[in-house]
Write a protein that binds this DNA or RNA. Structure first.
Length: 487
RNA sequence: GGCGCUAUCGUCUAACGGUUAGGACGGAGCCCUCUCAAGGCUUAAAUACGGGUUCGAUUCCCGUUAGCGCUACCA
């Protein structure tokens, strides 16, 4: 049985890169009918926050991808310590009593340190310390960290096959004696992660490429634990347009998935977008349903170079993500879209109910790229009073204020009696244009601006119909007043 | 500094060693059209550089350069 895990550490919000790792794990699990495990890697108590944990759950919940088992590392410390001590007992690790500061690699020119190139490897007298002295000092209460004793004498290198990057080999001479247990007794990430992966019988570890070189250490731990090595698949990293890795401090909230949610992305559009970053179905398909994705997702489709997410101050979201979202919006049913947009309209402060939203939705479906745009694209449907606009906006193409005035006067007459549906309005208004001897467009533009407050808006007849006769007449009257003020 | 990974249009990517190097987003232009969208069509735009191997390299090898990652008692 295939088992994969997603193991975020709650030291920030759910990052878009983490979200992609989760999505890939999920897809891999579902594709192979395996088990998806969510494990919170919260060993670093100092840096964990509840806010961050909440943010992660919020993000995952929004993505709408489930998991089958759930664990928290902080509740499994006993297991981690037990396994670390087994490694120590086997003689594969040793106690290092060096105070924290002097083990700092920055001080590698210290005579006490043993280095290769300029990488700190270990402190010789600690690694060579007799069992008796080590036990005595530990019993005396002297603080120590437990370090893995990298077998540089007996093995020249460590090797494993990555499902994405192929065979990876690293010289033992380049791997430092890494810590398993801190002096506080709390396991390090490497120890806790491997102990849990072993205990939970994880078969495939799919994670960011930033862990590729850590994997040699993990191989060593798995070996020391005497368990079968899981398969590894590392994912290329997601980076910002400036080439740096995404960080909240440097790039702002665009790196958090809740930002996408709040801006009005549909969960699946977001999933679809991140899938295309570092993975390809190898054909020309880009818009893929969740089912299609799970059907065709394989690790062979993952590529090896970092992917840049394109965003800027002006356009905070990658244009392709926005396009994917717009495409998703266009293919949704009117009912689903209406339900999805409603909360965004309400959040913008408009008084709307589901019935009203259902009338408006068809008119904005192909005009919004993000759900939140309902507030700027459909505002005039909700407002009691239109925001002030320049009366010159009422002037039609190749026309003047006088033409605008006569159009509005005629429109008022027509709309007072016209049948208030698409065909009725079409016929009546085109007739009005003819009688005024102007083009239909010249007839429509002043009316549009009068009822919408701007030139760019949904098609006129449907808009008038949804707005209703009373509102239309009221707004046209207001526009005529406005025109009077200009002469 | 050491070690590792990577390198195709601006971006995401495709191409058993043999293609006019394909697609998508974005850009430009045209068409459609009551404005805006949507849609249709057209178009510009790439194999980092230098060496090999080969009849033939985007593809394989080496080097250079660049970017990223790891180098903690963070994860």
């Amino acid at each position: 049985m295939l088992r994969v895990r997603f193991a975020p550490s709650p030291t920030g919000y759910l990052h878009i890169g983490s979200a992609r790792t989760f999505v890939f794990n999920w897809l891999y699990a579902r594709h192979n009918k395996g088990t998806m495990i969510l494990r919170i890697d919260d060993t670093d108590v100092e840096r964990n926050t509840q806010t961050s944990l909440d943010s992660i759950f919020e993000g995952l919940k929004w993505l709408d991808l489930n998991w089958d088992e759930f664990y928290r590392q902080s509740e499994r410390g006993d297991l981690h310590r037990k396994l670390a001590n087994e490694i120590l007992a086997k003689g594969l690790a040793y106690r290092d009593f060096t105070p924290a500061q002097t083990a700092d690699p920055e001080q590698s020119d210290d005579a006490k340190s043993h280095t290769s190139g300029s990488t700190w490897l270990f402190n010789p007298e600690m690694r060579a310390m007799s069992q008796e002295e080590s036990d005595r000092r530990a019993a005396a209460g002297e603080p120590f960290v437990v370090r893995y004793k990298v077998p540089r004498e007996t093995r020249t290198d460590i090797s494993f096959v990555d499902e994405v990057y192929g065979r990876q080999t690293k010289a033992t001479a380049d791997i430092e004696d890494f810590a398993l247990l801190r002096s506080s007794g709390i396991p390090t990430y490497h120890m806790a992660s491997c102990a849990d992966d072993a205990d939970l019988q994880i078969t495939h570890i799919i994670r960011g490429q930033d862990h590729l070189t850590n994997t040699f250490k993990h191989v060593l731990i798995f070996e020391a634990l005497g368990v079968e090595l899981p398969k590894f698949g590392h994912l290329p990293l997601l980076i910002a347009p400036d080439g740096a890795k995404l960080s909240k401090r440097k790039h702002g909230p665009v790196v958090s998935v809740t930002t996408y949610r709040d801006a009005g992305f549909l969960p699946h559009a977001f999933v679809n977008f991140v899938c295309l970053l570092g993975w390809s179905p190898k054909d020309d398909r880009e818009r893929l349903t969740r089912q299609e994705l799970t059907d065709i997702f394989t690790l062979e489709g993952v590529n090896r170079s970092n992917a840049t997410i394109n965003f800027s101050e002006e356009d905070p979201f990658d244009p392709k993500a926005v396009w994917l979202n717009a495409e998703t919006i266009r293919t949704m049913s009117k009912e689903d879209l209406s339900a999805a947009v409603l909360p965004y309209a309400q959040a913008a402060g408009f008084k709307v109910d589901a019935a009203r939203m259902a009338q408006i939705t068809p008119l904005i479906q192909e005009r919004i790229k993000l759900l939140s745009e309902v507030s700027t694209v459909a505002d005039f449907f909700f407002l009691d009073q239109l925001a002030p606009y320049d009366p010159n906006e009422l002037v039609p193409q190749k026309g003047d204020l006088a033409m605008a005035a006569s159009v509005l006067e005629r429109a008022e007459e027509i709309l007072a009696t016209a049948t208030f549906n698409h065909d009725g309005l079409d016929q009546a208004l085109r007739g009005g244009a003819e009688s005024l001897k102007i083009k239909a467009g010249q007839m429509f533009q002043p009316i549009r601006v009068a009822v919408c407050g701007r030139k760019n808006a949904p098609p006129l007849f449907e808009t008038l119909e949804v707005l209703g006769r009373d509102v239309c007449l009221k707004r046209i009257a207001a526009a005529r007043q406005l025109l009077k003020g200009t002469v």
